[in-house]
Amino acid sequence: MTEQSIPMIDLFAGCGGMTSGFVAAEGYQPVMAVEWDLHAAATYAANFGEDHMRWADIATIPNDEVPPADLIIGGPPCQGFSALGAQDVHDPRNKLWQEYIRFVRHAAPKVFVIENVDRFLASGEFALLESEARPGGLLEEYVLTVALLLAADFGVPQRRKRAIVIGSRIGEIPVPAPTHARSGDLPRWHSVRDVLTGLPEHPTRTTLPLSRVEVFGTEVPGRFKSEDLHIGRNPTPLSLRRYRAVPPGGGRFDLPYELMPRCWQEKKTGTTDVMGRMRWDEPSLTIRTEFYKPEKGRYLHPQWEPGDDGHRVDRPITHLEAARLQTFDDTFEWCGTKIQVAKQIGNAVPPMLAKALAQHIKPYLTGVESTRSRCALCPE
């Protein structure tokens, strides 16, 4: 650790999307990361080192093993809050934010950052979190700033809304200002075209290489490089006919009646983005954990031209394309099966959004005026 580095703990670290952004902002040094999922922890270790990664249930880590740090980051599991889940207020995963608070109490950071789904801000758990920042609460030293950020506003080619809570005991830290916009004076939102152009339209593999690596004393699939993740599927002829019928921005309602499964034939309303196709010149919608299934969202490749002879790419996006839309660098390495890697990609905080937060927070932690680094996707 250098003399000027900011010691940082990443809780519920996943594969390391948030750490990736903070490390890219320079000046931050991870001193501990905690993740219970073996393959996500292995991916983190492959990119940032095994020495400080704790593959464990956060509740099993004793207080005396929590190191001091100037910053804690992380996103407690969101399934209990997510609109896609059962929204069970008694879901035990909702209580994991209390473990986050325990780490804050013992590491005594100057600043902490919590990331979660947008519905978190309307949850009872968030109300309890706010109450802990009042006089007499466990976080009474901290001033909270709450924001709902759109990832596209910070250089991510994806319309992904995330709740951000910044807690500070060194003075209030305001909401970061957008760096990009749909229109106006700021640089334009980045599009699907910006990150998918140049990749082969037709992947030659449907499986990951048969390689394994030892981590935490056990073997896991990996380490996979970016080119290993450009893998396709083997859709049925019926699926291909469905894909071909969907234009950019379209979805299941564009299918001819005879190509609809019975449940869609009988349901005339509802979600419009399933079996959807991306648009080249817009950000994607949220990349979730099953992006390789078009029936789960707008995940079809954007290339589509009208007419019987129009040039079309009739497949869902690959793992590599999803990772790029999440703004993972091609140098990032991955561990796990296809399904496990997809889960890591979809659950991650986009590194470019994390980097924007890191750049915004740094001057408050160091007392030095920030110099914003160039957006990796923007032209010189």
Rank of each mutant, 00 (worst) to 15 (best):
T2E: 15
Q4Y: 13
S5P: 04
D10A: 13
C15L: 05
G17R: 04
T19P: 03
S20A: 15
G21P: 02
F22R: 01
A24C: 12
G27Q: 02
P30M: 13
A33L: 04
V34G: 07
E35F: 00
W36M: 11
D37H: 03
L38D: 11
H39R: 06
A40I: 02
A41D: 00
Y44V: 05
E50K: 13
D51E: 14
D51A: 15
W55I: 02
I58G: 02
V66W: 00
F81D: 03
A83L: 11
D88L: 13
D91S: 12
P92I: 07
P92N: 05
N94G: 14
E99W: 07
Y100D: 05
N116F: 04
E125I: 14
A133P: 03
A147Q: 01
L149A: 10
L149G: 03
A151T: 07
R159P: 03
K161N: 12
R162G: 06
I164H: 05
V165H: 05
V165L: 13
G167R: 00
G167C: 08
E172P: 01
I173K: 02
P174M: 06
H180E: 09
R182G: 10
D185H: 12
D185A: 15
S191P: 05
V195L: 12
L199I: 04
P209H: 10
V215R: 04
V215H: 00
G217S: 06
T218C: 14
V220S: 07
V220I: 06
V220M: 10
R223Y: 14
E227W: 13
G232N: 04
T236P: 01
R241S: 15
R241K: 11
P248H: 03
P248C: 10
G251C: 08
D254S: 10
L255C: 03
P256C: 09
L259E: 02
R262T: 12
C263R: 06
Q265C: 11
V274A: 10
R277L: 14
W280P: 03
P283R: 00
S284N: 03
R288A: 14
H301V: 08
P302D: 11
V313K: 01
H319I: 12
H319S: 14
E321C: 13
A322Y: 00
R324G: 09
Q326N: 09
F328S: 02
E333N: 13
W334T: 01
W334V: 06
G336P: 01
G336I: 07
Q340C: 07
V349T: 10
P350T: 01
P351W: 07
P351V: 00
K355A: 13
A356F: 05
K362P: 00
G367L: 06
C378A: 15
P379M: 11
